[in-house]
Design a protein around this nucleic acid. Structure first.
Length: 181
DNA sequence: GGAACGATCTGC
DNA sequence: CAGATCGTTCCC
């Protein structure tokens, strides 16, 4: 992959997901710290990639560090970071952010009084992420959405069961910091 | 061509 | 706790 500090994205989703905690997701003037992730592996019946390459999952089988955005329940978008190795069909769902920059705009997009980014679809709405950004390179400096590492360390990471799935519920592939940050 | 269902959120 | 709401996938 040869991207220096992001080489670790080229690995199993269950290793990449905890490592994404604490990193910053930047979208235009808005940004937030990643506080919750879930891993979806290629051999995982809960993963979109489980049944192979389809028009939707094509991006999941692409390069690590790419944004995979999917549409769910007829109204919501969710954002993932493709993990590696390339062609293996793995991704990490971003489930929650702690708002950093552009909070006023995020609140405007979400609606007054509504929570900003404590859910996968909420954070997409807050950051203005939708299907047209699917396949974007999160590691390119000029991208509309990108990842940043500011050296933040949130401490201990707690694995738990993933949310909203009907199969493979026993896997502890949801990751959060042990203490609120 | 049709039907079932989904990595969610909201308001009742 | 159920409704909203439609793309994706699979089966006939």
């Amino acid at each position: 992959m040869a991207r220096g500090e992001w080489d670790w994205l080229d690995g199993d989703a269950t290793e990449v997901a905890p490592r994404l905690l604490g990193k910053v997701l930047v979208a235009g003037e808005c940004s937030g710290r990643i506080l919750e992730t879930e891993a979806y592996r290629f051999d995982d019946p809960a993963s979109h990639s489980f049944n192979g390459v389809t028009p939707r999952t094509e991006v999941m089988f692409g390069r690590p560090g790419v944004l995979y955005v999917y549409f769910i329940y007829g109204m919501h978008w969710c954002a993932n970071v493709v993990a590696g190795p390339e062609g293996s069909g793995q991704a990490v769902l971003i489930r929650a952010l702690g708002p950093l920059d552009g909070v006023a705009l995020m609140q405007q997009r979400r609606g007054e009084g509504r929570p900003l980014s404590d859910g996968p679809a909420k954070l997409c709405e807050a950051l203005g992420v939708s299907g047209e950004l699917n396949g974007l390179d999160l590691l390119a400096p000029g991208s509309a959405v990108r990842l940043r590492d500011d050296g933040f360390d949130g401490g201990e990471i707690h694995p738990s069961e993933r949310i909203g799935i009907s199969v493979a519920k026993e896997k502890l592939w949801r990751y959060r910091f042990g203490v609120d940050v």
